[in-house]
């Protein structure tokens, strides 16, 4: 498969991971989501999901909140403005790459 020319945009390494890309894409459509909902949608394990969410949190792309709902602890995640901008930049980069590849 031919390589693309090397003047093309680099991709954000935090967004580029498939699981993290999936998480950001899921969170882009909701205000906030529970850990369990994200796990169900991605089919991931608790540990794997937690690690990727922590990386996104460290990058400032998602925010986490722990609270009690009906006396049960829930962990909620939401995408930050920084995360939304990062995803948009990543998508724009992919489109640019695809346009060059075609």
């Amino acid at each position: 498969m031919p390589e693309l020319p090397n003047h093309l945009p680099d991709l954000d390494p935090v967004v580029h991971g498939k699981m993290r890309l999936a998480l950001l894409s899921l969170l882009s459509g909701v205000d906030e989501a529970e850990f369990t909902w994200l796990r169900e949608k991605t089919g991931s394990t608790d540990g794997n999901l937690g690690a990727h969410l922590l990386k996104l949190e460290d990058a400032g792309y998602v925010a986490m909140e722990k609270k009690f709902v009906a006396r049960k602890p829930v962990t909620l995640y939401r995408m930050t403005d920084t995360g939304r901008a990062a995803l948009e930049r990543y998508i724009a980069s992919l489109k640019e790459l695809l346009g060059t590849a075609l």
């Binding site: 498969m1 693309l4 020319p5 498939k18 999936a22 992919l94 695809l98 075609l102």
Partner: peptide
């Protein structure tokens, strides 16, 4: 993660995932 290292199939897969 350099854009130069992704081929068309990989780009398509990423877009489909999103």
């Amino acid at each position: 993660v350099g854009g130069s290292a992704m081929n068309e199939r990989e780009i398509g897969e990423r877009i489909a995932l999103i």
